[in-house]
Design a protein around this nucleic acid. Structure first.
Length: 280
DNA sequence: CTATAAACCTGCTGGC
DNA sequence: TGCCAGCAGGTTTATA
């Protein structure tokens, strides 16, 4: 499922392929894929506009237009962006943009959770106001992470999935970051020591950078702009590896439920506070 | 504040 | 073989 690395990878591909092109026609096949306005309004505000830039904030794709407005896309669970020929179609296409470069950009989404909208410049801050810091920005330091976690008693896994704490982590990279930092997913966020916070900060960045480098994690539906799968599943250390040996110590990876989500971890490398205390 | 559940959706898997 | 319950997980909203 698309998290920060999957969105960032496609943002880079889109930047290469799209900047400078004009949207000559917009088609909406699933009206509810358009949020905050009617499909007619979306079509009116997009059509004829030129794409000046492509960016990303958290798991949102942001296409800046020559009107000053931005197309904002969230892929949610199963959304993909795909660059096709002008006459080409693909299954589950919800919105399509015909481009002046002779291509057609398709937003496909089997599960229909993804959303597309247009945002005026002065509305963008409000749209993103509840998002925490970008974990790959230079100003995201261990101190920032510590401050964001605050005194929360929540399980650290739950806190990492909270987009207002850090923006862009989802289930895969939260598990990967915790493994790298050797922190058990059920540890209380407030219980982490400064050393553990520093390790978690590094783990978050490593996990995300590895994901981007390999085009994202494809075990389900994530695809790149040319329908190619990402290869990061080959580089994942705990996610989807239940029962397989830990790459560090050989213990079988375990899977538990945390806040209705799966959490994968090594029971030997990632000790709970109680287990760590008992070991002393 | 924290926790939990439901809602939004459909494809895929595993059990019988 | 065929059917179906349950799982997959990003986000918002409601409820306790």
């Amino acid at each position: 499922m698309p998290e920060l690395p999957e969105v960032e990878y496609v943002a880079r591909q889109l930047r290469e392929a799209l900047v400078g092109s004009r949207i000559t026609r917009t088609e909406v096949f699933w009206p509810r894929a358009v949020s905050r306005m009617s499909p007619e309004e979306l079509i009116a505000r997009l059509t004829g506009r030129r794409v000046l830039a492509v960016g990303r904030r958290a798991k949102y794709l942001v296409l800046t237009l020559d009107s000053g407005e931005s197309v904002v896309i969230h892929r949610r669970m199963s959304g993909n962006l795909r660059l096709a020929r002008a006459d080409e179609d693909a299954p589950y296409t919800r919105v399509a943009f015909l481009l002046s470069n002779g291509r057609r950009l398709l937003f496909t989404d089997p599960r229909k959770f993804g959303r597309v909208t247009v945002v005026a410049p002065d509305e963008l801050p409000a749209l993103f106001s509840r998002l925490g810091p970008e974990p790959l920005d230079a100003d995201f330091t261990p101190d920032v992470l510590a401050a964001r976690l605050g005194k929360s008693s929540r399980a650290i896994k739950v806190a990492l999935l909270d987009q207002s704490v850090v923006a862009g982590l989802g289930n895969i990279y939260a598990d990967e970051a915790l493994f790298r930092a050797r922190i058990h997913p059920l540890r209380s966020a407030a219980s982490l020591t400064p050393d553990e916070i520093a390790a978690l900060h590094a783990g978050i960045q490593e996990a995300l950078r590895t994901g981007i480098e390999h085009g994202g994690t494809t075990f389900g539906r994530h695809r790149g702009l040319y329908d190619e799968p990402g290869s990061n599943l080959e580089h994942v250390q705990v996610y989807h590896r239940t029962g397989q040996p830990c790459l560090r110590c050989g213990s079988p990876i375990e899977r538990i439920r945390v806040a209705q989500r799966s959490a994968h971890f090594c029971p030997q490398c990632q000790l709970t506070s109680e287990a760590a205390a008992a070991a002393l």
